[in-house]
Computed example of a mutant assay.
Amino acid sequence: MAGCMGAWRYVTSLEICRSLSNVIGPRHLLCRYNAAYLYLLGHVLELGFGPGVGLKDALAKLGPHGHLYGVDPSEYMHSVASRRLASGIQTGQVQLFSGTAESLPLPDGIIDRVFHCNCYYFWPDLDKACNEIKRVMKPGAFMVTTLSISVLRMLEDYGVFKDVKWQPQPYMEALQRANFTDVNMKSFQQGSFKYQAIFAAVK
């Protein structure tokens, strides 16, 4: 599967789409929680930006001297996000790239903050992706990813994620092998919606 739009992007059955319609809203919440955790400053990167919801929220929180980068393999999502972020792109504060986590079109050591949502379990090579992400991060930078284990389990039960290895532990172990520090996962709840955030830092 290409891209990192989240589970519902790959649902093709109308019946399942209707049954899972209640998780589309939470996906947007996860994007916004990511931006909230980052204390945005400097150069910020979103992986798998999808329709640009997370980047749009990040742009609103970023100061006038900050810079946003987005990388996503989907040309369609690039088109959608480009429209949503047109003003930031025009001013040069936002740059969107077509690419993957395993091969980021960015120079070494320029990123202060990284965030992604519903993404890591679509990366073909976790170790390569984690090492590549670390390459573009500055010393002292950190990363956060959000997910909802309860939603992912539901998708697995529906058969949508039959062959997707979504469990967070392999991803966290790959982060540690890439020498990220302070790798940990915390659980949160907003109203009735339960979700998790995985944190990792670069020394």
Results as ranks from 00 to 15, higher is better:
1 M>A: 13
1 M>L: 11
3 G>I: 14
6 G>P: 04
11 V>W: 01
12 T>S: 12
13 S>F: 00
14 L>R: 14
16 I>C: 03
24 I>Y: 00
24 I>E: 15
24 I>H: 01
30 L>K: 05
30 L>V: 11
38 L>T: 07
40 L>C: 10
45 L>K: 08
47 L>A: 07
48 G>M: 06
48 G>D: 09
50 G>N: 07
51 P>M: 09
53 V>G: 02
53 V>W: 01
54 G>K: 05
54 G>V: 10
54 G>Y: 02
55 L>K: 06
55 L>E: 07
58 A>R: 05
60 A>T: 11
61 K>L: 15
62 L>V: 14
63 G>L: 09
64 P>D: 15
65 H>I: 10
65 H>V: 15
65 H>P: 01
65 H>E: 15
67 H>Y: 05
68 L>W: 00
70 G>N: 05
70 G>F: 02
72 D>K: 06
73 P>G: 10
73 P>A: 13
76 Y>E: 15
78 H>A: 12
78 H>P: 03
78 H>Q: 13
80 V>Y: 01
81 A>E: 02
88 G>P: 04
88 G>F: 01
88 G>L: 04
89 I>Q: 13
90 Q>G: 03
92 G>K: 12
92 G>Y: 04
95 Q>Y: 00
105 P>V: 14
106 L>N: 06
107 P>C: 13
108 D>S: 11
109 G>K: 14
109 G>Q: 15
109 G>V: 14
112 D>V: 12
113 R>T: 10
114 V>M: 07
115 F>L: 13
115 F>E: 13
117 C>P: 01
118 N>L: 11
121 Y>N: 11
122 F>E: 11
124 P>I: 15
126 L>N: 08
128 K>I: 12
130 C>F: 03
130 C>R: 00
131 N>P: 01
133 I>T: 15
135 R>H: 06
135 R>N: 06
140 G>N: 10
142 F>R: 09
143 M>W: 04
143 M>G: 08
145 T>Q: 06
149 I>W: 02
150 S>C: 05
151 V>E: 08
151 V>K: 03
151 V>M: 05
154 M>F: 03
156 E>I: 08
161 F>V: 12
162 K>M: 07
163 D>Q: 06
163 D>T: 14
164 V>A: 10
165 K>T: 15
168 P>A: 14
169 Q>M: 08
169 Q>I: 09
170 P>V: 13
172 M>A: 10
173 E>K: 11
176 Q>C: 09
178 A>S: 12
180 F>A: 03
182 D>F: 02
183 V>H: 02
183 V>L: 03
187 S>N: 07
190 Q>M: 05
193 F>I: 12
195 Y>T: 11
197 A>R: 02
200 A>T: 05
201 A>R: 02
202 V>W: 01
203 K>H: 08
